[in-house]
Design a protein around this nucleic acid. Structure first.
Length: 482
DNA sequence: TTTTGAGTTGTTCGA
DNA sequence: GTCGAACAACTCAAA
């Protein structure tokens, strides 16, 4: 009699290469039963948003097709996860459940309970690391505390052993012989109704193959110029790997080794610095996971407690204008519309729109985090939390209080030809470069010639940045310690 | 324990 | 137009 089947529980690791749980199952021997369990109510209030669900649907289809070809079709179930897995073990006769770890606070808690209950039922239950270069509990300061500053954190990462080389995908996977009931992917109703995903389909190819293609593009086209161009939102100068990383269609180890291997024989100017600069960004992702793991309350509340009494404003009208990309600040609006249409926003622009919400409008960062959560295809609790707290100044290694982005200056600096603004705010497209980032200052005849009537078509600015800046500095004054 | 140097991404003002 | 300094004080990490 052979080895009993292993249930391979897919979560945010929707790939077949560099998949430690799959490798573990192969080592154990016996047939493999791949399963995905849809259990949004177990995500602690952070169930995937609408854009993420769209991505998840596409990604599950890709994974399902890949597994089918390998010989072990994917089974789809609804949660609760504990019940779905226990039932599946019973009907399949499985003796083990393997999965790759997640690090969000509520998921960590659920998985720990689940592992215990599976073991109590006499099953092997093992978890693996597919998502991070370094486990959050492996990295400590000399005094044994978690890091709260990025630079020493990353330095300590780089001094550790090189992350293990990724395992290739197996040629074949032996599936379970009996027929196991599965939901159809469509029954999860992940795709939006009505269908508003055309803008996303136009730019993204979710799935493992899409991830590999995006990585190749980045290595070939963007790495040498990375440090110079990554801040220019009109260019495809960033990796654009964030959604693939979130869903685990590619893992950080694969990226690490691919970047280092490409750099080893890349003689182009800037290639070395570009590679290390990009790996450093991967380091920020590690840092974000490290922080959320060690400070589990920070998805909801500021890491720096004095910010609990920051004088935030409730302004539903301004919040709505921000969400819709109608603040009257062209670069902010361009970013918000890129987000709405494609489910993604350039990193530099994320900082600018976030700074605008938090510092110009004085609206709580949590509101911004929630909106990003619903609209981003790469919505990731650790990254999103770090990003918003950093901008608000209430997180680890946060921006100093006086760092308030000026959306006009940022536009002129990083979108000098206004290609980005013209793409996303077409009503301003005919304004000359000199005025397009501050249309309310343009002479009337220039506006008329460009066919722009402020207040009709494109709005007046909803706040005066200079005044808003002073107000924000005052508000920050009020929570100072002394 | 105490000390020391440093800390992703900016803006403004005045020389 | 360009450049350097000021914008605070605090906390972190390592020695």
């Amino acid at each position: 009699m052979g080895v009993s089947p292993t249930i391979l529980w897919f979560r945010l690791d929707l790939r077949l290469a560099d998949h430690p749980a799959l490798q573990g199952a192969l080592r154990r021997g016996g047939p493999i039963l791949p399963v995905f369990v849809w259990a949004p109510e177990e995500e602690g209030g952070w169930a995937p948003g609408a854009a993420s669900r769209w991505w998840l649907h596409q990604s599950l289809r890709a994974l399902s097709e890949a597994l089918e070809k390998k010989g072990a079709p994917l089974v789809i179930q609804r949660g609760p996860a504990a019940r779905a897995l226990a039932d599946l073990a019973r009907v399949s006769g499985a003796g083990a459940v393997f999965w790759n770890r997640r690090y969000e606070p509520d998921i960590v808690r659920r998985d720990a309970a689940l592992q215990e209950s599976l073991r109590a039922q006499g099953l092997e239950a093992e978890s693996f690391n597919a998502a991070l270069l370094f486990e959050p509990w492996e990295l400590k300061t000399r005094s044994g505390d978690p890091y709260k500053v990025f630079t020493p954190f990353w330095k300590s990462c780089l001094q550790r052993h090189e992350p293990a080389a990724p395992a290739p995908e197996p040629n074949r996977i032996e599936g379970c012989s009996g027929k196991i009931a599965s939901l159809k992917l469509e029954e999860l109703a992940l795709e939006p109704k009505p269908d508003w995903a055309a803008g996303m389909r136009a730019v993204w190819s979710p799935g493992e193959a899409g991830a590999r293609q995006e990585l190749r593009r980045f290595l070939v086209e963007a790495v040498p110029g990375y440090l110079d161009d990554r801040d220019k939102p009109a260019r495809a100068a960033t990796s654009r790997l964030s959604p693939y990383l979130h869903f685990g269609e590619i893992g950080p180890r694969q990226i690490w080794h691919a970047v280092r291997a490409a750099a080893a024989h890349d003689r182009r100017a800037g290639a070395q610095r570009g590679s290390e600069g990009y790996l450093r960004e991967l380091g920020w992702r590690e840092f974000a996971h490290h922080l959320l793991y060690h400070f589990p309350h920070t998805a909801e509340r500021p890491l720096r407690p004095e910010f609990e009494k920051f004088p935030w404003r409730r302004d539903a009208v301004a919040l709505r204008a921000w969400r819709k990309g109608k603040t009257g600040y062209p670069l902010v609006d361009a970013g918000m519309r890129e987000l709405w249409t494609t489910g993604w926003m350039h990193n530099r622009v994320r900082m600018i729109v976030a700074s605008f919400l938090v510092k110009d409008l004085l609206i709580p960062w949590q509101e911004g985090a929630r909106w990003f959560w619903d609209t981003l295809v790469d919505a990731d609790l650790a990254n999103n939390t770090l990003g918003w707290q950093w901008t608000a100044g209430c997180g680890a290694d946060a921006a100093p209080y006086f760092r308030i982005f000026n959306p006009c200056t940022q536009g002129e600096k990083f979108d000098p030809n206004a290609d980005y603004v013209r793409r996303w705010v077409p009503e301003l497209a005919r304004l000359p470069d000199a005025w397009i980032h501050r249309p309310w200052e343009a002479p009337p005849e220039i506006l008329a010639k460009a066919g722009v009537v402020l207040g009709k078509g494109y709005p007046h600015p909803i706040v005066d940045h200079a005044a808003a800046r002073d107000l924000a500095l005052w508000a920050l004054e009020t929570i100072k310690k002394r």
